[in-house]
């Protein structure tokens, strides 16, 4: 089981966390076209490599946080931006 580093709690078993998904920015709901909104809802970059994503430390401090993870080998580095930042 891989370790994931929570900014509050440090390295913990990944089973303590819930995967939220790729970090995405929410389009302005007033002006978004259907296509823009559905890209936000349904589409993913899904790269084989580094990705910015959001995790939730549900069995710990309950913080949502951003992290960069390599989807090929699960290596991690802390996210440049904050949680929810645009990918």
């Amino acid at each position: 089981m891989m370790l994931l580093t929570c900014p509050n709690c440090g390295a913990r078993n990944v089973s303590e966390f819930r995967y939220v998904g790729e970090a995405k920015s929410r389009p302005d709901p007033e002006t978004a076209t259907p296509e823009q909104w559905r890209r936000y809802l349904y589409f993913h970059r899904n790269p084989a490599g580094w990705i910015s994503e959001t995790w939730y430390h549900g069995s710990g401090c309950r913080r949502y946080f951003g992290i960069e993870r390599n989807t090929v080998d699960n290596a991690q580095r802390s996210a440049a931006g904050t949680a929810g930042a645009t990918s």
Partner: peptide, 10 residues
């Protein structure tokens, strides 16, 4: 429970 291209299993 999370997206990955790793097939190492758990």
């Amino acid at each position: 429970p999370f997206a990955s291209y790793s097939t190492r299993g758990s």
